[in-house]
Structure formats: structure tokens, C-alpha cells
């Protein structure tokens, strides 16, 4: 780990003023052998940043801690029925938060299925959404891969069993956040503040970007922006949801596949609207729009759920070692739909 200076920001403005680059930009710069110079990056819970520092993938001159900013971890019910989650709220707090559990169970399930208790106690929702991909080529400094500014994806012709089955060219990462799968399905927005005090609200789904938008960044965070909050919309009556994660293990493990389903059911039981998101499937949480369309207006049942499972995988382009994800996702989509609709 390189040496760095420590900045304990006390306000968002201080943090924004002190930071000079996103972690992604700082990494690309370092991998390109640019002098580390005066780079300053933000740190929330610090789990991912510390990981990157230890691997020598990140070597900033300064780390700006958000932990000392009062109130940035607040979880507040908003007028109109939404929920505003401060970006520094820890995953364990969200997993157990009574409002999250009651109104957004897919999120609490997704968060509870993430990492280990120890990590959840430190990791924040903001940091979770902004963490860099877990691709083992990306995470080893030996591989100067596309995502670090290099010229080659090592996974596509390499060990790609844990990689993307959608949108996997030219870079085959999967988005690492399990929480994001649920949040995108829930229509969450993120709130981004800059040093000038300007705040922009972006739909999380749009905040994340695929490799063809930007190869070195998984999202649209600007260099001096601070992700301050994640906002969940109010949900209409009749909303049902579920999140399912399947890892090789139930103990601490990254998912092979995870699925979030949010269904808006009419009083007559038919599906008014569906959001269906596949995590660990693509470089961003993957909306299965075809399957969503299939569910709209119909009564949810075993056959329809099965059909939706198949539709959700339409267009998948599995790599040499990850075609097993197709039947796995089909199963999870079907089970998640049935779990959401029928409990």
C-alpha cells in the first residue's frame, strides 16, 4: 500500500472540495503510469478502497473520508411515502431497518445477502454502489485490462465463469453490487452533490453505464461529486417484490446470479407493471424488459413465470464458461416472480 495523507471532511462541501478524482479515474491514471501526483479520492466505509490500495491498484496522494460528515448516514421517510437513504448508511443498518424491511423487502433481502456481517457493518450503501468490479483480471495489477485503460479484455478468452452473459463485449465484467439489483428494480434515484452545492438527481438505472458508454467507469459519477443519498420512490398499493441471490455458497460469497422483481398487481390480481432486474449478469444491473412486457396485464402463475424466465434470457451471449448462468437465471427469475406475486 502506498502512503497517503488523510482528510477528514466535515461537510459535503469540504469533501467535494478536497477530492480530485473518482476512484475509477485515479485507477486508470495509475494503471497508465501517470504520476500519482496530487490525486485525492473519497472513501465511505472504505472496504473497496482499502482492497484496491492493498492490491496496488489505487495509490492516491490523499484519501478524503466521508465518515465524519454528520447526518450522511441518515435514513429518513420522505413526505409522499418515499425513503431517503444517506449514502453512508451501512448495509447492516439497512438490512435491519424496519421501514426498509416492511416497504422495500427486496432491498433488505439483497443487502442481507451481501458480503459478511463484518463487511456489512462497515460497508455503506453509497460505497457499495460505487465499488469497482470484482473481475479477477481487473483486480490483479498484472493485467492491464480494458477497464484499467489497457487494450484487452482477458476474461473473454480466459476464465470467465463468473462474468457477464449480456453486453459482455468488449469488457465482460458484471456489476458487483447486489443492492443495485434491487434498487434499480425499485426505481431508485441517486443524489449527487458537488462542491458548488449543486445537487443532481439521477435515476440509478441511468447512473450506471455499460462499457459502450464508458469503458473505465461503471457509472456517471463526476470527479468532484459526492454521492449523498439514494432515494426510493413511494410505491403504489399492490406492489409486491422479491430478491433472490444464488451463490455457490450461502456463507460469504459473491452471487453467481441474483434477480430482483417488483410487481404492481391490480386488485383483480393481474400484473399492472413489472420491473425485473438481473444482477451479476451484465456490466450494469440488467433490466429484462422483454420479460417485464410479458408480465404486464397478465395474471402471474407458474407458466407465465417460466415464460418470463425464458424471455429474460433472450439475447444473452454467454462466454465459454458461463452458459450455466442461463438455466440458473431462468430459475431465479421464475422463482422470484412467484415469490413476489404469491409470497
Amino acid at each position: 500500500m502506498n502512503r497517503f495523507a488523510w482528510v477528514n471532511a466535515r461537510t459535503i462541501e469540504e469533501a467535494s472540495a478536497a477530492v480530485s478524482a473518482t476512484v475509477a479515474d485515479a485507477m486508470t491514471e495509475l494503471a497508465g503510469n501517470a504520476a500519482a501526483g496530487d490525486t485525492a479520492v473519497l472513501k465511505a466505509g472504505g472496504v473497496d478502497v482499502l482492497d484496491l490500495l492493498k492490491e496496488g491498484l489505487l495509490a492516491p496522494a490523499r484519501i478524503v473520508s466521508l465518515r465524519g460528515i454528520p447526518g450522511l448516514d441518515a435514513v429518513v421517510e420522505e413526505a409522499g411515502g418515499g425513503l431517503r437513504i444517506g449514502s453512508m448508511a451501512t448495509l447492516s443498518r439497512l438490512a435491519d431497518h424496519p421501514v426498509v424491511r416492511r416497504r422495500y423487502p427486496a432491498l433488505s433481502e439483497a443487502v442481507r445477502a451481501s458480503a459478511s456481517p463484518q463487511i456489512r457493518n462497515v460497508a455503506t450503501l453509497g460505497g457499495n454502489l460505487l465499488q469497482r468490479p470484482r473481475c479477477w483480471y481487473f483486480r490483479a495489477h498484472e493485467y492491464h485490462c480494458l477497464r484499467k485503460g489497457g487494450g484487452h479484455c482477458f476474461a473473454i478468452a480466459g476464465e470467465n465463469q463468473y462474468h457477464a452473459i449480456f453486453d459482455n463485449r468488449p469488457c465482460a465484467i458484471v456489476h458487483p453490487s447486489t443492492a443495485a439489483t434491487a434498487l434499480v428494480a425499485l426505481g431508485a434515484t441517486v443524489e449527487l452533490a458537488d462542491a458548488q452545492g449543486a445537487v443532481r438527481q439521477v435515476l440509478l438505472e441511468d447512473f450506471f453505464g455499460p462499457p459502450d458508454r464508458d469503458l473505465q467507469r461503471e457509472n456517471d459519477l463526476k470527479p468532484r461529486e459526492v454521492l449523498t443519498a439514494i432515494r426510493l420512490p413511494a410505491l403504489p398499493a399492490g406492489t409486491h417484490m422479491a430478491h433472490l441471490k444464488q451463490g455457490e455458497k450461502d456463507s460469504f460469497d459473491w452471487p453467481l446470479a441474483d434477480v430482483a422483481v417488483v410487481l404492481e398487481l391490480s386488485p383483480d390480481g393481474s400484473c399492472r407493471k413489472a420491473a425485473l432486474v438481473l444482477g451479476t449478469a451484465a456490466p450494469v444491473p440488467h433490466r429484462a424488459k422483454q420479460a417485464e412486457g410479458l408480465l404486464a396485464g397478465k395474471h402471474i402463475g407458474e407458466d407465465l413465470a417460466r415464460e418470463a424466465g425464458r424471455a429474460a434470457l433472450e439475447g444473452a451471449t454467454p462466454l465459454a464458461k458461463n452458459a450455466y448462468k442461463l438455466p440458473l437465471f431462468e430459475t431465479l427469475v421464475r422463482r422470484a416472480i412467484l415469490k413476489a406475486a404469491l409470497g
Binding site: R134, W136, Y137, A140, E142, Y143, F154, A157, G158, E159, Y162, E248, K249, D250, S251, F252, D253, W254
Partner: peptide
């Protein structure tokens, strides 16, 4: 392609828990 172990850790080298 590189001859290097890609899971030389306790995260992607998976052990029973």
C-alpha cells in the same frame, strides 16, 4: 493465457463456510 492463478486469495478461492 498468462499462466497465473486468478483466484490466489480466500475470496475467489472458495472454502466451505
Amino acid at each position: 493465457n498468462s499462466g497465473r492463478m486468478v483466484n490466489p486469495n480466500l475470496e475467489q478461492y472458495k472454502l466451505l463456510g
